[in-house]
Amino acid sequence: MKNTVIAKRYAKALFAVGKEGNAFADFTKTLNAMSELFAGMPEVADALTNPLYPVEAREKVMEHLLTSMQVSQVLGNFFKLLVQKKRANILPDIAAVFQAMVDADNNMCQGTVVSAMELTPELSAKVKATLEKITGKQVVLTSQVDPSIIGGIVAKVGDLVLDGSIKSQLAGLKESIKGSE
């Protein structure tokens, strides 16, 4: 997260290009796939960022990657530029910032909901509706299951956290008993 300033600059440029070509959906998909690749396969990230390999070699790796992923011309250029400028390491940051920019443009935001058990579709729709009411934006909800919260749900949208989990309530109860001693 330290390189957000630089990531913002690159994302902004890409955003401007995407707006002209109306290619946000394609861009976000590819960027997210790329950032997942970085997270999932550190060897790929290493091959693209490690300064021990000459820049030409790294560029070649990127080119192979691009042809195998069938990336559009514009985005392909963008990735090559990143490798050339030795900024490939901030690719995940760029993906995140770009996603946020596209969301803001569409009046949308990403939310996560954590629950102890799998949520039923009705419940998850209800959570989504509530979050949309609070934020005034369309919420794209992803759900996670974490048994450690015991019960209830924790919903996050951006900086906002709605914590209704049994875990945090127990912690609060503990504090209140300790505090009044």
Binding site: M1, K2, D159, L160, V161, L162, D163, G164, S168, Q169, G172, L173, S176, I177, S180
Partner: peptide
């Protein structure tokens, strides 16, 4: 005393704005 405190403890959904420590 503890019983009383547990009884009085209001369970409410905690709404907060958060951030993460960078450094």
């Amino acid at each position: 005393i503890i019983k009383g405190q547990i009884k009085d403890y209001e369970s409410k959904v905690d709404l907060s704005e958060t951030g993460t420590v960078i450094s």
